[in-house]
């Protein structure tokens, strides 16, 4: 894409967005329906999230559960995956059960989590972590298995101990794979956060959206979805930024490898 039509592309994009919003507003005015609130009410509801009651009863509980569940998935998943991948012989033993758990649609464990933990934050965090840990484990495991033997030989010739080999050779080599796994885990964790709040919670964004729908407060429903989208967008952007910082070498390396 050339620079010269960068600005005109931006204009076209704004144009399309403007048209869609206008179409919404016009239909909301001409044919009022419960599912079609006016844009200004949606916007007002959206702004409500950032102060007072809703911030503490909807936004923060969700973010808190997400942060802990996702954090556990990333840290524990990387650790387990690296260990299993480093011990190459274990692969055939553990892979089938891991694959099974990975392809188990995670919603299905919600009833079990409810039974074991009750409708608590522990249950929601467990469900988020359980849903998102397997992509991280499998990615880290495959990454660790694929570390080039020559690099490990170089480390051995240079007299690195096994912990040094893990931190100076295996971990950096596996980081791209782990990040790929984390990217998949991120969207799963968000989905699990919402599902766990839709099914059993008395606070959090999922609960807020479902309650608003039952009370026919449609502007609130749309505002909640909008906020979840925004959270997803910001989290993805943050992760790409972290990735770019840690994996600058990888982009160039991949690019050079592709060029050959």
């Amino acid at each position: 894409m050339s620079r010269s039509w960068g600005t005109s592309a931006l204009l076209w994009q704004l144009c399309l967005i403007g048209m869609l919003l206008a179409a919404w507003q016009v239909s909301a005015t001409l044919w009022p329906a419960p599912y079609l609130p006016k844009l200004q009410t949606v916007l007002a509801s959206f702004l409500n999230f950032f102060h007072g009651n809703l911030l503490f009863s909807a936004v923060l509980p969700s973010l808190y559960r997400f942060a802990i569940g996702f954090g556990v998935a990333v840290l524990l998943g990387s650790f387990i995956g690296l260990t299993l991948g480093y011990l190459r012989g274990l692969n055939e033993w553990v892979r089938p059960i891991l694959e099974y758990l990975r392809f188990l649609p995670t919603v299905a464990i919600l009833p079990a989590a409810l039974l074991l933990f009750g409708a608590t934050d522990g249950m929601r965090i467990f469900v988020i972590a359980f849903g998102s840990i397997f992509p991280v484990i499998l990615a880290a495991m495959d990454g660790a298995r694929r570390v080039d033997q020559v690099l490990i030989d170089v480390a051995r010739v240079n007299g690195l101990t096994i912990p040094q080999r893990i931190f100076r050779v295996i971990l950096p080599a596996v980081l791209p794979a782990i990040f790929a796994g984390i990217r998949i885990a991120l969207s799963i964790a968000l989905v699990m956060m919402v599902i766990s709040e839709l099914i059993a919670a008395n606070d959090g964004l999922g609960h807020f959206i479902l309650r608003s729908q039952r009370l026919f407060q449609t502007a609130n429903v749309y505002a909640g979805v909008l906020l979840l989208g925004a959270i997803g967008f910001v989290l993805t952007a943050c992760m790409l930024a972290i990735e770019g910082r840690f994996l600058a070498w990888y982009k160039g390396w991949r690019g050079a490898a592709d060029a050959i």
Binding site: L190, V191, I209
Partner: peptide
């Protein structure tokens, strides 16, 4: 794309 799909169920 980043909207967690299940959040749209109420909508």
């Amino acid at each position: 794309r980043p909207v967690p799909s299940v959040a749209l169920i109420p909508v």
